[in-house]
């Protein structure tokens, strides 16, 4: 069959060419970390694939979820690998997205005309954090029930506790909601927002590239190289340190020394020292700052405020990890 037949009906080649042309526009390649977004996208792709595979065996049931994950890692062939890839790429996604955000912040690339790209990115970052949080609840290990209780309590402070719990108390309905969020609502929103984010990047190009002309295939090659590097790191982590599975949650209690994933440690530590009603401020203040940042014209104070927030988060995180 002639390629022209497909082309006539789909325009695929033309579309492919235009995408390639966009990717081949010259970029300020000397700038460090320019491929962080590409790596985040690649890792999210791995998350979608490994996550989709896990749904084949996972059972979102209060009493059977832990067994189903144990079945995946002990009996299903390569189950340990698929889960390990999902867990480790989740850690890497969160880390890379955080670095991507920090880089754009430091360079001030959120400024006009890229405000919408920035807000879209901030929303994407929150969704990635949400995916990490809800994913943590699914194995129903000792950390899961504590996490769900805390999430419901945060929601309670803004009157949305029932929406998280699915009833008056944390239970099966809560796990079902975590599952729905993790597997349907968050990934669906991610897909939509990633599309928008990329379209906006395509429209405004990268900071510093606005006036560059000509064509170069350097960026796709650099991005491919970065992604290969990320894949190599992921392979080593996933195979050398397969993701563990904690003991099954006690239905009657919260285990001693439960802690959330590292990215949530600053919040974990901070809620110890503030009243429950103030807990959502720990999310609202950084989120509000990031949303408002494109409107703040003072470059140095903004950078200083960002540094203070980061230092506070790191300090609290270290305290939380040691607690």
């Amino acid at each position: 069959m002639r390629v022209g037949w497909i082309e006539d009906r789909t325009g695929a080649r033309q579309w492919f060419r235009s995408v390639r042309a966009r990717l081949s526009r010259p970029l300020p390649l000397k700038s460090a970390g320019i491929t962080l977004g590409s790596v985040a996208l690649f890792l999210l792709f791995l998350q979608f694939v490994s996550g989709a595979l896990l749904t084949v065996y996972y059972v979102p049931s209060w009493s059977d979820a832990h067994d189903s994950v144990a079945h995946i890692v002990t009996e299903v062939r390569f189950g340990w690998l698929v889960r390990s890839v999902h867990v480790w790429s989740a850690h890497m996604t969160v880390a890379i997205v955080a670095l991507h955000l920090m880089r754009v912040f430091v360079r001030g690339a959120y400024a006009r005309p890229r405000e919408a790209t920035w807000w879209c990115g901030v929303l994407l970052g929150s969704l990635v954090a949400g995916a990490a949080f809800t994913g943590q609840a699914l194995p129903m290990d000792e950390e899961a029930t504590g996490g769900m209780a805390v999430a419901a309590s945060f929601a309670d402070s803004v009157g949305a506790g029932a929406l998280v719990r699915g009833g008056p108390y944390v239970g099966q309905a809560t796990l079902s909601r975590m599952f729905a969020a993790h597997v349907v609502f968050i990934p669906g929103s991610l897909l939509l927002l990633i599309t928008l984010h990329l379209a906006l990047v395509g429209r405004h190009r990268l900071q510093g590239a606005e006036t560059m002309e000509g064509s170069s295939s350097a960026f796709p090659r650099r991005a491919a190289l970065s992604c290969s590097g990320a894949l190599a790191v992921l392979a080593v982590l996933a195979v050398a340190w397969p993701a563990g599975l904690g003991s099954e949650a006690d239905p009657l209690g919260t285990a001693e020394h439960v802690k959330p994933m590292w990215i949530f440690l600053p919040i974990y530590q901070a809620v110890k020292g503030i009243p429950a009603w103030a807990a959502p401020l720990l999310l609202a203040i950084p989120a509000g700052f990031l949303i408002l940042v494109p409107f703040l014209p003072w470059r140095r104070p903004v950078l200083a405020a960002g540094a203070v927030l980061l230092a506070a988060a790191v300090a609290l995180g270290v305290l939380g990890a040691m607690a």
Binding site: T145, G146, A149, V150, A152, S153, F154, D156, V170, L252, G253, T254, A255, E256, H257, V258, V271, A276, A279
Partner: peptide, 19 residues
């Protein structure tokens, strides 16, 4: 505080929250 389940400490004779 945040809704975790408290445990009884038989030595100290108090209820403590692990979270």
């Amino acid at each position: 505080h945040q809704g975790c389940k408290v445990n009884w400490d038989p030595n100290g004779r108090f209820l403590s929250c692990p979270c």
